[in-house]
Simulated assay, not measured.
Amino acid sequence: MSQVLAHELETDSMQSLAQATVGCDFHIKMLDGPACDQLRRLGFCETMQVRKLANGRNMICTVCGTRMALSRDLAHQVKVVPIPA
């Protein structure tokens, strides 16, 4: 029962990387959209950790120790949950 509640809370807190707060760390939970294969090749895989560094026309973030810029469209396809502090 507690696993079901934890999963529901996690799903409720899921947001796209485009919506995520700058300066925070997140776990990638799901890739949802037509560019999933392209995102995985860039290192945006489920369970990876990502930090959003800047917000604008392109999102700047770090994943696997590398800074990357993603278009807003790609960032909407990366679903993340915050890492508790």
Rank of each mutant, 00 (worst) to 15 (best):
E8H: 04
L5D: 01
M30W: 07
V78S: 07
C64F: 01
T66R: 15
F26R: 03
A18C: 07
T47E: 15
T11E: 14
E8Y: 03
G43Q: 04
V63H: 06
H76D: 11
F44L: 13
D12Y: 11
G23V: 03
K29T: 09
L70K: 02
E46D: 12
T47A: 12
C36E: 15
R67T: 15
V4D: 09
R41A: 11
C64T: 06
P34G: 06
M1N: 04
V63T: 07
P34L: 14
P82D: 11
M14V: 13
D12P: 02
G56Y: 03
E10P: 00
V80T: 10
R40L: 08
L53P: 08
T62S: 13
H27E: 02
I60N: 14
L70C: 02
T66G: 03
T62D: 08
V78R: 10
D12T: 04
R51E: 08
S13W: 04
E46T: 11
E46F: 03
S71P: 06
S71C: 11
E46G: 00
S71W: 10
G43N: 09
P84C: 01
P84H: 03
L5G: 00
V80R: 05
M68E: 06
D12H: 13
C36N: 11
T47V: 10
T47F: 08
R51M: 04
P82E: 11
V78E: 14
G43E: 05
S16K: 12
V81C: 15
T66E: 06
H27A: 06
I83H: 02
K79F: 13
N58E: 15
A85D: 03
S2P: 01
A54H: 05
A20F: 00
R57P: 10
V4M: 02
F44E: 13
V81L: 10
K52R: 15
C64N: 13
V22E: 09
Q19T: 15
A85L: 08
I83P: 01
S16C: 10
N58R: 14
Q3P: 00
T21S: 09
A85F: 06
P84W: 02
L9I: 01
S71E: 08
S2M: 03
D25H: 05
G23K: 07
M14H: 12
R51T: 12
Q38T: 11
N58A: 15
V4Y: 04
H7Y: 03
R40Q: 14
T47N: 08
D32K: 07
A35P: 00
L42I: 04
A18L: 14
Q3G: 00
E8L: 13
D73G: 09
A69V: 06
N55Y: 04
G23E: 01
G65M: 09
S13I: 06
P84T: 01
P34W: 10
